[in-house]
Computed example of a mutant assay.
Amino acid sequence: MSLRIAIFGATRGVGLALVEQATAQGHECRVLAREPDVLHDAERLKVISGNVLDPDAVRLTLEGCDCAVVSLSASGKNPKTICADGTQIVIDEMKELGVPRLVAITSLGLGESEAQVPWQFRGLMKTLLRNVMQDKARQEEVVRSSGLDWTIVRPSGLWDGPHTGDYRTGTDSTTLGKSINRGDVAHFVLKELSEGTYLHQTPWVMR
């Protein structure tokens, strides 16, 4: 079944890979981008220029959509609370428009998955990545309390690469994380949108 997907955070990383895979499979994508020129013209792709912290731009992106994917990340151009604040605005507008399905991409190492990441990364989580992880932890709280049909996807360490199909998913918090390429994470997100296997759960995705 073809979906109409609103994607926030689509100009790089998992979000960009998701746009490429979704449109190739015949889904329609509406994406919000501060730098729309980053995205190439494609069939079934509508790019809205704007910022995820602007409710009007978020609402315009969501219009007519069946579902939404939030793939936000920290950068020098964004405030430190971009993931949580942006996701809250997306949720508010989804409720206004009656868009029921949300997939948010966060990170392995949050909540009960902390023990799944290497000890070195756990150290970084509490030092250099402290603000980033706090933002994503609050983002997860926002999603859990949204009242929507949500799934929180927690990828392990990410690297650039195309979809290979060589990955695992699950919710067992004893499985140790292995790095995964962004193309495979995007593939899993698209599969989850279609199948809803992990509704109201926080699956990890890793090799």
Rank of each mutant, 00 (worst) to 15 (best):
H187V: 02
Q88N: 09
G50Q: 08
V58Q: 06
S71N: 00
N78D: 07
K77E: 09
S146N: 06
Y167S: 05
L128W: 13
A186D: 00
Y167W: 03
G165Q: 07
G9V: 13
S146M: 07
M1L: 12
E93G: 01
L124N: 08
V69N: 03
S146Y: 04
T171V: 15
G161W: 00
H200I: 12
M94S: 05
G161P: 01
C67Y: 00
D56I: 12
T151K: 03
A17G: 14
W204M: 10
R101E: 15
L110R: 08
V14F: 04
V90H: 08
T87E: 03
R144W: 07
S145P: 00
T61R: 07
N131W: 09
P36H: 09
E28M: 09
E195T: 15
A10S: 14
G183A: 06
R59E: 10
Q139Y: 02
G111P: 12
I82F: 00
W150G: 07
H187T: 08
I105W: 08
S145C: 04
W204F: 15
D184P: 09
K80P: 00
T171D: 05
L18N: 04
C65L: 00
H200Y: 14
R168C: 01
G26A: 11
E140F: 08
G177D: 02
D56Q: 13
R154D: 02
T11Y: 11
I48W: 03
R130V: 13
T81H: 07
G161K: 03
L3I: 12
L45Y: 07
E35H: 15
A33E: 04
R144K: 14
L72R: 04
L176N: 02
G26M: 12
I7C: 07
L108I: 10
E112F: 13
V205Y: 02
W119Q: 11
H40N: 12
L39P: 14
E28P: 01
H200C: 14
E96R: 15
R138D: 10
S179Y: 01
I152R: 02
A104P: 10
K77D: 08
T174I: 08
A22S: 08
I180H: 01
L72K: 06
G170E: 02
S145T: 07
G147Q: 06
V69Y: 04
D41E: 15
V99A: 06
V31G: 09
H163R: 13
S156Q: 04
I180L: 00
A186W: 02
K80S: 06
S113I: 11
W119K: 14
H200R: 15
T23R: 13
G9M: 14
S156Y: 02
E114N: 15
Q134W: 11
G183R: 04
T171I: 15
I152Y: 03
S146D: 09
M1F: 11
N131Q: 14
S2H: 10
V52F: 09
S2F: 10
Q120F: 14
D37W: 08
A33I: 06
G111C: 12
V47K: 07
D135G: 06
D92N: 14
A104M: 06
A24V: 13
S49P: 00
R207D: 13
S2L: 11
S145G: 03
D184E: 06
Q25F: 01
L108D: 03
F188C: 01
D184A: 05
A186P: 04
N78P: 04
S113R: 12
D184T: 03
P203W: 10
D166L: 09
L16K: 15
P155R: 04
S156F: 05
E114F: 15
